[in-house]
C-alpha cells in the first residue's frame, strides 16, 4: 500500500470509524449480538475497526498475525462470521466513500483498488481462520461421537444388550460392528439384543448395516434379536421392502430379554415369601 493512501486513511480514520459504526448497527440482528450489552457491542466494534487500521501500516506476516490473534478472540466470544463479513463490506464502502472525493479519476481508481486489496486480504484471513476453527470443532465432535458409540452391556449369563442411539452412518456402523463382535467374544454372549429404540430413522442403509451386523454375530457363534421397534419404524421397514424375516425381532427390550432367556434355557421365577 503506498504511503499516500496510508496517510489519507489515517487522516480519515475517525470519520470512517463513525460512519462504519452507524452502518453496522443496522444489521445487528443476530441473537448473540442482541444479547450482549450496548457498551460491550460498541467497544468490540471499535476494537475491531482499530485493529483494521493497525493493519494499514503493516506488511505480510504482521497483518496476518494481528488479524489471527483478534479473530481467535471473536471466535471465542461467538461473533458470527456473517456479521463480520458484512461489517467488512460496509467498511469497504465507507472507506472508499470517504477517501474518494476529488476529481482525479486515475488516482481514485488506484485508491479504490488499494482499499479493495486490503479488505480482501483481511476477509481471506478471517474466513480462513473461522473455517479452520469449524473444522476443528467438527473433528472434535466426530471424536466425541466415536467415544460414545455403542457399548455392549452384559445383563445376564450369556446375554448382552447393545443400545444404539442416534444416526447410524457407514463409519459408525463399522465401529458398532467391531464393538459388537469383540464384546460377544469377551463376554461369551450367546444372545445379543440390539436395541434400536434410540435410532431416529431406519432407512434401507441403516437396515442393511443392522442385517450385516447380525449376520456377523451369527458367524462368530451367537444370536441376535432386534428390539425396540417402534410402530413408525415397523411401517418404514415394511414400506421400504426391507426383509428382516431372517432374524428375530421384538417390540421392546423387555420382550427381547424374555425370549433371550428362553433361548439360553433360563427363566425368571417369583420367590414365594
Amino acid at each position: 500500500m503506498n504511503q499516500q493512501i496510508r496517510e489519507l486513511i489515517h487522516v480519515h480514520k475517525s470519520t470512517i470509524t463513525d460512519e462504519w459504526m452507524k452502518e453496522v448497527e443496522k444489521f445487528r440482528e443476530d441473537d448473540y449480538l442482541q444479547s450482549i450489552s450496548d457498551t460491550v457491542y460498541q467497544n468490540t466494534n471499535r476494537e475491531f475497526v482499530d485493529m483494521l487500521f493497525n493493519t494499514v501500516g503493516q506488511e505480510g506476516e504482521d497483518v496476518k498475525e494481528t488479524i489471527s490473534n483478534y479473530t481467535d478472540r471473536l471466535i471465542q466470544l461467538g461473533w458470527p462470521l456473517n456479521y463480520i463479513i458484512r461489517g467488512m463490506q460496509e467498511f469497504r464502502k465507507v472507506a472508499v466513500e470517504s477517501l474518494i472525493r476529488n476529481d482525479d479519476q486515475t488516482r481514485d481508481i488506484e485508491f479504490y483498488q488499494e482499499v479493495e486489496d486490503w479488505v480482501d486480504e483481511v476477509v481471506n484471513i478471517l474466513v480462513g481462520h473461522y473455517s479452520g476453527s469449524w473444522e476443528n470443532t467438527v473433528f472434535l465432535q466426530k471424536m466425541a461421537l466415536k467415544e460414545l458409540s455403542a457399548p455392549l452391556i452384559p445383563v445376564f449369563d450369556n446375554i448382552s444388550v447393545m443400545p444404539l442411539i442416534g444416526t447410524i452412518d457407514t463409519e459408525r456402523a463399522k465401529q458398532i460392528m467391531e464393538n459388537l463382535l469383540t464384546g460377544v467374544i469377551e463376554h461369551r454372549s450367546q444372545v445379543v439384543l440390539i436395541d434400536i429404540t434410540g435410532v431416529p430413522v431406519v432407512d434401507t442403509m441403516v437396515a442393511h448395516h443392522i442385517i450385516q451386523a447380525s449376520e456377523a454375530v451369527r458367524l462368530v457363534g451367537a444370536k441376535c434379536i432386534l428390539v425396540g421397534i417402534r410402530p413408525e419404524i415397523a411401517q418404514t421397514i415394511v414400506n421400504l421392502g426391507i426383509d428382516l424375516g431372517k432374524f428375530p425381532t421384538k417390540s421392546s427390550l423387555k420382550k427381547g430379554i424374555e425370549s433371550a432367556l428362553e433361548m439360553t434355557s433360563h427363566q425368571i421365577v417369583e420367590i414365594e415369601e
Partner: peptide, 18 residues
C-alpha cells in the same frame, strides 16, 4: 463351526459371504 474371529466374520460379511 466355532471360534470364528470378529475380524474374519467382518471380512466375510464385507465380501457378501454369509
Amino acid at each position: 463351526l466355532t471360534g470364528i474371529q470378529p475380524a474374519v466374520a467382518i471380512t466375510l460379511i464385507d465380501m457378501g459371504i454369509v
